[in-house]
Design a binder for these strands. Structure first.
Lengths: 346, 346
DNA sequence: CTCCCTTTTTTACACATGTAAAAAGTGCAC
DNA sequence: GTGCACTTTTTACATGTGTAAAAAAGGGAG
């Protein structure tokens, strides 16, 4: 690469032989200059090493074409796949993604939101933590720029921005119905109450159970602290119970797959699954989300698949619609259905 | 929040009653102004809603305090944990992270590198893809800004930037030695040749085997395409072989845990592990990395734990050292040892 | 009260680009 | 060759901040 390094548009305009404003217009839309000029610029550009200054361009354009994404944890394959899908769709529409992980900490979440505003992001997709303290923050940011909440929505103010997520009532109901149809009605092993999904899944379980004429039965957490370490959480609780011979032939619906993975590990250690998972065991464990590794567990986790791809696509589309001003008015609330994945564990 | 919204430092300086340059210095270092002034600013700032303009500040500072991180896939818990750790350390040092996933695609990787330069990032931590086409690109970016390669290094030019990663020779050797000591010498199930780790682990396996007086034996991929879908890769290959009664009582060393997870699933489906993983089976499968879910498999995966935290910490420290000019001279090559994790699968 | 030193304000310019308006240039039809 | 329409160049100003230098103000010691 012996190409001449050029660092400003002014230098570049001299090297190419067109004026700087013409170059500026060319970079924003090559068809906005005469075809012969456009060709000339394109040709000379190939001989030269020039990268435009992102900071300077974005400071002056009305739109920065930056979209912020805030998720609770990168180290969770559900959020990781959501993020990858969002990135893919945003890239197609010409937007750059700024990812911030809130690391489960409302303070970091707040910091991330403020940083997005200071970066003049055009909008943001947020998978919020469940902290009540965030309500004010979200109200504040919603006033300033288009926001789409994804996966879960803030506890207090549901009406300040669009939302896309899974219809937990549908997804959990379809699992409960299946489990009741196939065998015993399930117990519910909830997730730590970290966001609205935790509540909705719990409520949906109870509601569906009652509708089917069963009394909801919850497995008690037994001294495990609330955290995003779901596998450890599920494993800790169920290992404890199985050690005391409890729930050893029960049907257990876990609030998410990561908890189910922990629970399945505990069950295996206690030899509670029938050899060769084809023959159904008395103990049944189901999850929720279709975590990428669910199918590799043994037994493979029966679960419901969230439409991650659809959620990501809609979130980006909703957001970009707002950013471009094509969509105004009341916030939209998109609930995606989830698909039952019958596998081996239940 | 009825706070007065203020969007520029000029407005703010009028509202507070100090000059704009004083404010500017206050924001960069509150101790650089007289304590009484600092207190006054701090006090009035609380009554007002002001966010500095990131783009404008960073355009003019010599340092943007932005660090770019490029990883092959977010949807891989190894990289996700690496990224989280990097983010944490960078945040402590006051740097903002811009993450770009190359999605396994050299073109996207190139795009990401160029974007980092156009954003005037102070430096970048890159976990490169193995593509030869990237050599020129990396040379180009290394000339412009401090780079640290993490996890794996570009195939061609090893000497253009610092590197931090796992000592694959040590890690694989310790596994091979353990496996040979405990029982039969292992076969090697490699990973797709996507980066230098793939080669190094393969070579280390062969070398260690010979040193111990055994002939290296490789399990052939049997028509599975090269991709980052490691679980599917491992599962596909081993399911195929197990179906033909091959390797059913072998010891198999997988190039990473995700492949091992796929292989273990296949083994379980074929009933090849002894019930209750306490009693050792003839079939043994080991992995590499200590993937966060390895311990939840059944049998739990025997593996070596990469020092993700240490790699992330060193990568950030090396990079920041270069950025601050505290470190110059020849590239450093830091190899972290990995720790054997004896679990149930081997 | 004065002097000196420190801090702050004022003023000015810089950064790399966007963008608007006026001036100059180009090409084409007649 | 003239006139017209379209492009491009020129010129000038904008963005929101960093930063340097000079001028002004403030505080403390004598």
């Amino acid at each position: 690469m012996a190409k001449q390094k050029i660092s400003t548009m002014k230098e570049l305009s001299e090297a190419i032989g067109v004026s700087r404003p013409t170059l500026s217009r060319y970079f924003q839309d090559p068809t906005s200059v005469r075809p012969s000029t456009s060709a000339k610029i394109k040709e000379r550009l190939a001989d030269v090493d020039y990268v435009y200054n992102f900071l300077a361009t974005r400071q002056n354009r009305k739109s920065t074409e930056l979209i912020g994404v805030i998720i609770p944890h990168l180290e969770d394959l559900f959020f990781a796949s959501l993020l990858e899908a969002i990135e893919r769709h945003a890239r197609e529409l010409g937007f750059t993604i700024i990812t911030q992980s809130s690391d489960g900490d409302p303070q970091i979440e707040e910091h991330a939101v403020r940083k997005l505003r200071s970066m003049s992001a055009d909008g943001a997709i947020i998978a919020p933590l469940g902290s009540e303290s965030s309500a004010e923050l979200f109200q504040w940011i919603c006033d300033d720029l288009p926001i789409v909440f994804a996966d879960s929505h803030p506890a207090g103010n549901d009406d300040c921005a669009d939302f896309v997520g899974t219809d937990n009532y549908q997804s959990v109901a379809s699992l409960v119905e299946y489990l009741c149809r196939a065998d015993e009605p399930p117990y519910f092993l909830g997730m730590p109450l970290l966001n609205t999904n935790a509540f909705e899944r719990r409520n949906s379980y109870a509601k569906t159970m009652r509708a089917l004429g069963h009394e909801p039965k919850f497995i008690e957490p037994a001294g495990v602290d609330d955290s995003w370490q779901f596998e450890a959480y599920g494993h800790g609780i169920m290992n404890h119970h199985f050690s005391h011979q409890r729930y050893t032939d029960a049907t257990i619906l876990c609030a998410n797959d990561r908890i189910a993975i922990g629970a399945i590990r505990a069950a295996n250690k206690h030899g509670l699954f029938a050899r060769g998972c084809e023959s159904r065991s008395a103990l049944r464990i189901a999850g929720h989300d279709d975590h990428p590794l669910s199918r590799y567990m043994y037994p493979a986790v029966t679960t419901v698949a969230q439409d991650v791809e659809g959620i990501a696509k809609s979130a980006v589309e909703l957001l970009v619609g707002r950013i471009r001003g094509e969509r105004t008015g009341d916030p939209v609330r998109l609930l995606k259905p989830a698909a039952l994945k019958l596998r081996e564990s239940a």
